[in-house]
Design a protein around this nucleic acid. Structure first.
Lengths: 226, 226
DNA sequence: CAAGCATTCACGATCTTACTTGATTAGTCA
DNA sequence: TGACTAATCAAGTAAGATCGTGAATGCTTG
């Protein structure tokens, strides 16, 4: 017969493990990362994570079972979103722990970004300071829905696909800092690439809105599409 | 043929999931929690988590594979410890997320603590303030190794098993605040129970050293048994 | 009411994980 | 050296997870 305190501990850690299990699959982490950018339909999530809709639906239900995300019907679509700001912070913490502890994260991203000629010339901290102080033009290159769901204060929105056609909206003389979904998203890398070739002074910022929120910094335009 | 950016994303999220998988099993979380209190041998961990030694060893290797813990041989024993303070903070964050999001955590612990007559009469914040200000006698009822590996500044160490025999070491007039491994550990509950029956003014503090570290507060006697 | 569509459910194939038992390794101490 | 011991490894089983396919659900719109 198991003693009561053992049964209690087993029950408690089993609950904790619900959260652990929810973040144990790579695809669920990718979905969570996408949801950190803003709410989305199942279809959009499936497409952006490159999985089938049925599969996405199942993963989302696992996440919902752990109460990390919530869903409600918006007309014909079901819209999923993070259940709580705390979930975004937790995701950023997990990602940060992986970055700190797993050398492979650095290897994988280094090999990818280097082969694309992406570099880290400017000090991250100094760049963040200038962004926050409004000393540079901040450019959000994510899809417009994500910009609407929340963006860095003062940023202008030009999706990376439209950038080439909308270059005239950008200043040639002041420095431009482009950002996207976060350190492992490539949209801002592409944007900076293009801008530099066109003679702009452009930098990439690794942080996205999830990182800003996790640091307790202000994010503009939240809750617009609730 | 999968595009390069997809392969990159898959590789990155797979790395993140290593951390997720490591915290997906209840027993591994229990081991992690124990290791937050201080380094331990495989045998001690197995016993305290109520699993076989072989099983504990395997779980510990999973944790080590995710670089969350480190091990080195100390004479006849292998001593495991957290790889990084960040790991302790991550564990506290996961636990906190489960507490906030999962009503079951509250239910399970409430039903257990209530049936033992444990209560939360004092405001947690006010209690913490008094502990940090040194206005009360702080009592650490964990095993002495754990006290040695790190304890709340100014706390005195009397393991819960020895408490009855060592009551004379405690003051009758000033308030005593007992703590143990954390909110889901029952040692401090027992201690407070005993103390009150003996006419002491005793309170239980839910926080343990892991919580103090996670808040960036000072912990005394760290690294003594490295 | 019926057609259309986004999402979920159900089932099965394949893979992974947790845990046990028993053997093996690598260190200690007489 | 040889008995002893902590920890790991290896193999097997049972349970659980991932993901695809195709059918079912339920809302919306004509």
């Amino acid at each position: 017969m198991t003693p009561a305190h053992r049964r209690f501990k087993d029950a408690i850690y089993e609950q904790f493990a619900r959260v652990g299990k929810a973040v144990a699959a790579p695809k669920r982490l990718e979905l969570l990362d996408l949801l950190c950018q803003g709410p989305r339909t199942v279809e959009a999530l499936a497409e952006q994570a490159s999985i089938s809709i049925a599969n996405a639906s199942q993963h989302l239900q696992v996440l919902r079972g752990a109460r990390l995300v919530e869903a409600d019907k918006k007309g014909l679509y079901v819209e999923y979103r993070l259940a709580d700001e705390e979930v975004g912070r937790f995701f950023v913490a997990l990602r940060g722990l992986a970055e700190v502890r797993l050398a492979e994260v650095d290897q994988v991203s280094r090999s990818y970004f280097e082969q694309r000629g992406a570099m880290e010339p400017v000090e991250g901290k100094e760049l963040l300071r200038r962004v926050r102080a409004g000393e540079v033009t901040v450019l959000d290159v994510r899809p417009p829905e994500e910009y609407r769901a929340g963006h860095i204060p003062g940023a202008i929105s030009i999706p990376v696909g439209e950038l080439k056609a909308r270059l005239k909206e950008l200043p040639k003389d002041v420095e431009i800092v482009a950002y996207c979904r976060g350190p492992y998203c490539v949209m801002a890398v592409e944007a900076v690439d293009l801008l530099r070739k066109q003679g702009f002074k452009a930098q990439r910022m690794e942080q996205g809105v999830a990182d800003f929120r996790a640091r307790g910094w202000r994010v503009e335009g939240e809750g617009v599409n609730r």
